[in-house]
């Protein structure tokens, strides 16, 4: 019986993994730019990025559903390019999750980059380090805990996704049926044994993830800050 849930579990992990990797790639330059950008419009941009934190996921899901429809420019472009619709597809879920979890990747990185003492960068530039060397030898090691937190939080948050998935993905086994949706279905059909199994798996996994995150953050999160004399 529990083996029936494996596809949903695998799909959830795959979605979370793809989303968090893509988010690190997107959020790193975005957060870096945001840290350095001084402009009156900055709070507006910050607010837009933070919006998924407070917006009911169904609202986000609804707008995404509209945007994914072949009538909209994005939906039409996708259909023309790839020959399939975005709605009710794994790719659509990834796109939705990216938006939904964006603040969970951007905010830790923004925090880490803001705390990075500017004089490290001044010194590194005065030593003629290349931008790549500055990124890999300095920023990445000094902000590694921020990167870990950004990755972990996006991963965990995508695991817990429900409303957005329901709106844009529906409940297609092997394609869009993630654990949270499968759980909902079990409850709907009054299969409480299955619901218990899925809930427990999600609960245990999320708890483990958060413990690892806090352990990592507590160990390294303040490390470079207290070391900078």
């Amino acid at each position: 019986m529990p083996l029936d849930y494996l596809p949903a579990l695998w799909l959830t992990v795959k979605l979370a993994l793809v989303t968090s990797v893509l988010l690190l790639i997107i959020a790193t330059p975005l957060a870096w730019w945001l840290t350095r950008w001084q402009c009156g419009f900055k709070p507006i941009v910050q607010a837009i990025i933070a919006l998924p934190l407070v917006l009911p996921p169904t609202v986000l899901g609804f707008y995404l559903l509209i945007a994914f429809s072949p009538d909209s420019p994005l939906g039409a472009f996708w259909l023309n390019t790839f020959g399939s619709t975005l709605a009710f597809s794994f790719e659509g879920l990834v796109l939705g999750s990216l938006l939904y979890s964006l603040p969970f990747a951007v905010q830790p990185l923004y925090g880490g980059f803001s705390q990075l003492d500017n004089r490290y960068l001044t010194v590194a530039k005065s030593l003629h380090l290349t931008p790549l060397a500055i990124a890999t030898k300095l920023v990445l090691p000094l902000c590694k805990s921020s990167f870990a937190v950004a990755f972990g939080l996006s991963f965990a948050h995508t695991l817990g996704e429900f409303g957005v998935v329901l709106m844009i993905g529906g409940n297609i086994p092997h394609e869009t049926q993630v654990v949270s949706i499968a759980l909902y279905e079990q409850v709907e059909s009054l299969n409480y044994t299955g619901a218990h199994t899925l809930s427990l798996v999600l609960l245990a996994f999320s708890l483990l993830l958060m413990v690892v995150l806090y352990w990592f953050n507590g160990k390294g999160g303040l490390g470079w800050n207290s070391q900078s004399r």
């Binding site: 490290y120 590194a124 030898k137 090691p141 470079w224 900078s228 004399r229």
Partner: peptide, 8 residues
């Protein structure tokens, strides 16, 4: 403040 790279 020396600003030595603390990871090295």
């Amino acid at each position: 403040q020396p600003m030595l790279f603390p990871n090295l």
